[in-house]
Design a protein around this nucleic acid. Structure first.
Length: 453
RNA sequence: GCCGCAUUCGUCUAGAGGCCCAGGACACCGCCCUCUCAAGGCGGAGACCACCGGUUCGAAUCCGGUAUGCGGUACCA
């Protein structure tokens, strides 16, 4: 109950939907109602069926009431630990006579219900692990299936649910492999067909422990906020523990649905590798249709500018702005949130640049000053005639030629003056995007800040 | 402690007895391209296939044991 908050549920369901996962049966999501013929799909709404199943096991003597107190249980456990024995329920209440039961009930009116685990071993064939065999003696004794307050426990509820929901395949994490014999025993006791099992490898942290909500970033919402696209997340997740057997690695959702096969699922756990996710994300960003990319990237640019707005006036970008910039940024986005640093200077009204940053590595302040002066002159002249990237570049290269400058140095000086950054999209396209007026303005400001007086 | 599962380059993996002195991808390094940053191209380094022993003419691949890791062992899920 403690873990079943609406927020947790929403988080899971929304994440699944965002990834494009859909289901034929299951609980409602934000806009869709509960689907499927076997509802309700929440444990709390199915308490009656658990009660009925438990009663049935009780009358068949496949389960029994247990009145042991927590003190008794703790004592058993302590003794077993001291003797270095496996921990198990000793079966004190397993064979009570009706009289004894009545007696016990006066002391403890709310017993738990335990399921008789029996003897022997449980063998089953797991679809990814092959044959598995566990001695029932290793199961810890008769297990509690209903608490003293009448609510059922997980191992019991899943079996009751799977039975009444006509489940044929149970596909889940490896952490349930050891629990599977309990489930099989329960299915049999319930008179149900035992479903097929497939235990998938766990997704691991870099230290190779199990990825979990507590220790790891597991909320899809966190990845969305960082600018990962659904296609990349799906692709990456699919490749953890599964491979196509070919050298292809980039798969669409549909291709995965088509090619995925339990037979090719890996048995060992897989570390969730961010580097690889980032690479995949970049691959997918490059593949997205223009319109789609604009729509997805715009919120990230807006968010970036919103924080910039604190230090000075900014202009809010529109979809057309981003669309126009697409050719410049597309190949430079490992994640959508990288778009801000790449183009935000286009939307900031007053750019302030550290004077020292203006001077390229191989240059001094004086050279930079003349360089910027020349650049201003050329850009103003060319710009008033034809303000195009190619024109600007060739003219400025001519300047370098006559002055004996390395083009890279001049370009870097201009770049910093105009954008405030040393890493930007191609300079001349950037200048065109900025506009003639603002470019000249920024060059002027840069020269002023460098002037001795 | 007991039980179960796993173990191929740092990471994700290919590999179903000879095609493997182990292939691909990410990351890393170098070169090319280049106005910066990327992207892209080319090349490099990187795995005694956890270890030991068996089976076999032949083992990463089959068998046994050991080690290590992970998971389970609750009136958690």
């Amino acid at each position: 109950v403690a873990r079943s908050t609406v927020e947790y549920e929403r988080d899971i369901l929304d994440g699944l939907q965002w990834l494009g996962m859909d289901w034929d049966e299951g609980p409602a999501t934000g806009d869709l109602g509960e689907r499927g013929p076997f509802g309700p799909y929440r444990q709390m709404q199915r308490l009656d069926s658990y009660r009925t199943a438990a009663d049935s096991l009780l009358t068949q003597d496949k389960a029994y009431e247990c009145f042991c107190t927590s003190t008794e249980l703790a004592a058993d456990r302590a003794a077993q630990e001291a003797a270095q024995q496996p921990l198990y329920y000793v079966g004190r209440c397993a064979h009570l006579t009706p009289d004894q039961r009545r007696q016990k009930r006066t002391d403890n009116p709310s017993p738990v219900i335990r399921f008789r685990v029996g003897e022997g071993r449980v063998d089953f064939h797991d679809l990814v692990r092959g044959d598995v065999s566990i001695e029932t003696a290793a199961l810890g004794g008769d297990l509690v299936i209903v608490r003293s307050d009448g609510t059922p426990l997980y191992h019991f509820t899943v079996c009751v649910d799977d039975t009444s929901m006509a489940i044929t395949h149970v596909i889940r994490g490896e952490d349930h492999l050891s629990n599977t014999p309990k489930h099989i025993l329960l299915f049999r006791a319930l008179g149900a067909d035992v479903p097929l099992f497939a235990h998938l490898p766990l997704i691991l942290n870099p230290d190779r422990t199990k990825m979990s909500k507590r220790k790891s970033q597991t909320a899809m919402s966190a990845y969305i906020a960082e600018g990962y696209v659904r296609e990349a997340l799906i692709n990456h997740l699919a490749l953890l523990g599964w491979s196509s057997g070919t050298e292809d690695e980039i798969f669409t959702f549909d291709e995965l649905a088509e090619r995925f096969d339990l037979d090719r699922v890996q048995q060992g756990g897989a570390v969730f590798d961010r580097e690889r996710l980032d690479w995949l994300n970049g691959q997918w960003i490059r593949k997205l249709p223009d319109e789609d990319l604009v729509e997805r990237a715009l919120p990230f640019l807006a968010a970036d500018l919103a924080t910039r707005a604190a230090t000075g006036p900014v202009r809010l970008p529109a979809a057309e702005d981003v669309a126009a910039l697409l050719p410049l940024v597309r190949e430079r986005l490992p994640r959508l949130d990288a778009i801000g640093p790449l183009v935000d200077f286009l939307f900031i009204d007053e750019l302030t640049v550290e004077p020292s940053a203006l001077v390229p590595k191989r240059w001094d302040a004086t050279t930079t000053l003349t360089g910027l002066h020349e650049a201003r002159r050329v850009i103003a002249t060319i710009g008033s005639v034809s303000f195009e990237a190619e024109e600007l570049e060739t003219s400025l290269r001519v300047v370098c030629e006559t002055r004996g400058w390395k083009a890279g140095d001049l370009f870097m000086a201009i770049r910093v003056a105009v954008t405030g950054r040393t890493a930007t999209p191609p300079l001349f396209d950037t200048i065109v995007a900025l506009g003639l007026e603002r470019t000249l303005e920024r060059l002027d400001r840069a020269r002023e800040s460098l002037s001795p007086g």
